[in-house]
Design a protein around this nucleic acid. Structure first.
Length: 393
RNA sequence: GGAGAGAUGGCAGAGUGGUUGAAUGCGGCGGUCUUGAAAACCGUUGUGGGCUUAUAGUUCACCGGGAGUUCGAAUCUCCCUCUCUCCGCCA
């Protein structure tokens, strides 16, 4: 969520940012509602002020054992008026908040303006010693390997749950477990992250806190009876660890790393990249989330990318780092690097990891602040960033 | 699932209709004293939203969340959530 005050004061900057992100702008409506809200607020506040004043008068008169019925009579209607204006304000606010929830984060100034994935910029690539991307040798894809070794059984996964629910067997299951175990151990040992294991089903407030709701509501698996959601990424529970909290500056940056299964309905995406692991309803992921001060957040983002690269180097996997252009950025991101690994079977780069800085966009939504140590009274929204990495796929 | 108890400021803990944004203690911050520190003493100490002739002033809201009663609610009524204790159930 963007800061309403910032929108009010910089409507053109906001509009331009949204346009660069290929999203639609409803800023004028927001500004109008914001104005309306403040007008109503002033009227209601004045009435409340009067009510408070007169109530004190009544209290004084009663204490002095004098007659207060005239004042009480005078105030009889005021309560109803206040309620009328408050109700009106609540309606306007609901409409306003609904609009705000659909306004994306603005791209950082260092992000190249572009329309689509074609405009993303390759920042660097790394290949193992002597690796040749143009090697024409036919390599079996993961489906074929999985079948040959009897370590993946998509057909039976479909029988158990439906399509898009992978079943790992024997060494396949062991490999999957070994990989996310390795990711976790590597980051804990070398990069100073703290491991967390979170609930995998969360409430609606948590989903709102990281912005999956309302925009992505259709893509979530729900437990309707309980009003709960299966997490689409561990980013949701990890970020919400500190929802409505004020952190101490000295504790920052906080670096969490956690494994979770991820559940996504992938509504409306059939027929596109649906082969094998490329787009499934349940997959495993190791997620990293940093809670940082605004000043250093872009340095932290670079480190986050480097941490991810270290893993791929350790596994000897060819990769490249892309900086996403404005048009390809996700709703909440201000800046994002994708790490793509080379698939020798498909002869193309496949996304393996995504490192985003959300700045204070999610922190404002989730109400996560920190208190500066030089000024105990000042609390600011912290900057959040996250990174995910999938074991197999 | 049934019965009971509870939820107040950073923490502990008063307050059951009228100057209560909230006693008191602890903690934090500033100061006095001291060569320095401790102790003692004095002062100060929440968040958010508005308005204005805007490093200030003023106002509104907030005592788990929501609705209600009232001229006036932390305090009374109703609903919800969560925590604790006891009973039942438990793949």
């Amino acid at each position: 969520m963007l800061d309403l005050k910032f929108i009010r004061e910089n409507p053109d900057v906001v509009k331009q940012g949204i346009e660069n992100k290929n999203e639609k702008s409803r800023i004028d409506e927001v500004l109008e509602l914001d104005k309306k809200r403040r007008e109503i607020l002033v009227i209601a506040d004045e009435l409340k002020s009067k009510r408070n004043r007169v109530s004190d008068e009544v209290a004084k008169l009663k204490k002095a054992k004098e007659d207060a019925t005239a004042l009480i009579e005078e105030m009889k209607g005021v309560g109803e008026d206040i309620k009328k204006y408050d109700d009106e304000r609540i309606n306007v606010e609901a409409e306003l908040n609904n609009l705000l929830a659909y306004i994306p984060n603005l791209p950082h100034s260092s992000v190249p303006v572009g329309k689509s994935a074609a405009d993303n910029v390759e920042v660097r690539r790394w290949l193992p010693e002597g690796y040749n991307l143009d090697d024409p040798t036919e390599t079996p894809d993961h489906l074929q390997i999985g079948k040959n070794l009897k370590i993946l059984d998509f057909e039976r996964g479909t029988k158990i749950s439906g399509s898009g629910f992978p079943l790992y067997m024997g060494d396949g299951a062991t490999l999957e477990r070994a990989l996310f175990n390795f990711f976790l151990d590597f980051h804990l040992e070398h990069h100073g992250y703290q491991e967390v294991m979170t609930p995998f089903i969360v409430n609606r407030e948590s989903m709102k806190g990281t912005g999956q709701i309302p925009k992505m509501e259709e893509d979530m698996y729900t437990c309707e009876k309980d009003g709960m959601y299966l997490i689409p990424t561990a980013e949701v529970p990890i970020t919400n660890i500190y929802r409505n909290d004020v952190l101490e500056e000295s504790s920052l940056p906080i670096k969490y790393c956690g494994y979770s299964p991820c559940f996504r309905r992938e509504a409306g995406s059939y027929g596109k990249d649906t082969k094998g692991f490329l787009r499934v309803h349940q997959f495993n992921k190791v997620e990293m989330v940093k809670f940082a001060k605004p000043e250093g957040s872009y340095d932290e983002l670079e480190k986050l990318v480097n941490d991810a690269e270290d893993i791929l180097k350790a596994l000897n996997i060819p990769y490249r780092v892309l900086m996403l252009c404005t048009g390809d950025l996700s709703f909440s991101a201000a800046k994002c690097y994708d790490i793509e690994v080379w698939s020798p079977a498909e002869k193309k780069w496949l996304e393996a990891s995504s490192c985003s800085n959300f700045e204070d966009f999610q922190a404002r939504r989730a109400n996560i602040k920190y208190r500066r140590s030089d000024d105990k009274n000042l609390s600011l929204f912290i900057h959040l960033m996250d990174r995910d990495l999938q074991p197999v796929g």
